[in-house]
Amino acid sequence: MKSTRDTIYDTLRQRLTSGHYPADASLVPLALSEEFAVSRTPVREALALLERDGLLVPTRRGFTLRLRSDEEMLELFEIQAVLDATAAESAAWRRSPVDMVRLDAHLDHAQSLNEPAHIRRSLNDWHDAVRQAAHNGTVVALLRTLDAQVKTSAPWRTPEVADTFTAAFAEHRTITEAIRTQDAEAARVAMLAHHGHDRDRRIRQRVRVEAELTSTTASDGSADAQR
């Protein structure tokens, strides 16, 4: 059974990695303890863990989101891609029959869905299955932290229609088949290419959101100037 701290940690982590909070949000222990109807101790402990994960930075009153520069964000994408490619390469050598069934099941399920958010969730499950098939706990732990940092820096925000996943499905299928045939180099290269495409999509979304915010701010300033 999860502790109160861990439950709060999981909830806040999910919010942070899904773009729930605006960039200037302030997470104050007192306010969160009232929201979760608990004392401030488990809230403070959960926030401290999120700071350790690189998702928050402390302020005088509590914590705020850790904002990363473009260069820092690209560094995260690069490290994440290398580690995931290593996981795919290892999975090609170490996967068991059970691992292959899981990979096929997650990919088949994703292709049966229509809602973009549900498709992404199922494809994330596929990525988790690749990492588990690598049978390397250190890589899995490092990638869990990196995933959260990437999602906080560039969360999926822009709605997409389901048919934009056609290329992504093909990429996932290519990696799956390389793992099945134990072609470690092909699995590694295909995973790197997949991450490159994913990185480019997320960067476009981040830049689009920034442009929209800039435009809104400029419009508000013009309106104030005309009053």
Rank of each mutant, 00 (worst) to 15 (best):
I175R: 15
D10H: 14
H109D: 06
W126M: 00
Q226Y: 15
A167P: 03
S215W: 11
T59Y: 14
R173W: 05
A129L: 02
L83C: 05
A167F: 04
T216K: 10
A105I: 00
N124M: 01
T59M: 01
S215P: 00
H194V: 00
R188V: 00
D220A: 09
A168S: 14
M73V: 15
A87L: 01
L123M: 10
E177I: 05
E71D: 03
T145R: 04
F165C: 07
V101S: 13
R13T: 15
F165W: 03
V57W: 04
Y9S: 09
L107S: 11
K151I: 01
A31L: 09
W156A: 12
S26E: 12
D183A: 07
E75Y: 14
A184T: 02
L30N: 03
S219M: 02
D220T: 11
E171Q: 02
V98F: 14
T59K: 05
R121Y: 09
M73G: 08
D183K: 06
V28H: 07
R157H: 07
A105C: 08
A133T: 04
T217N: 03
Q149K: 11
R5F: 02
A167Q: 14
D10N: 11
D220H: 12
R44Y: 00
S96Q: 05
R188G: 12
H118N: 11
D108W: 09
T86W: 00
P116M: 02
R13N: 13
R68Y: 13
R13K: 08
I179N: 12
P97Y: 01
G54V: 08
A190Y: 09
V161A: 11
Q132N: 13
R208S: 10
I79G: 14
R199V: 02
R131M: 13
P155V: 03
L12N: 03
Y9R: 02
A91D: 02
A133R: 01
D84R: 15
R204T: 05
D70Y: 10
D198I: 00
L55E: 04
D10C: 05
I203F: 10
A170L: 02
L56I: 03
V140S: 07
T17E: 06
G221R: 09
D99A: 04
R44I: 09
A23T: 02
A141R: 00
H135Q: 15
R204Y: 02
M73S: 14
L213V: 12
Q226E: 11
L103W: 14
S18K: 04
A134F: 01
R188T: 08
I119Q: 11
A223P: 04
E210M: 09
D220E: 11
V98R: 15
L32C: 06
H195Q: 14
L76G: 13
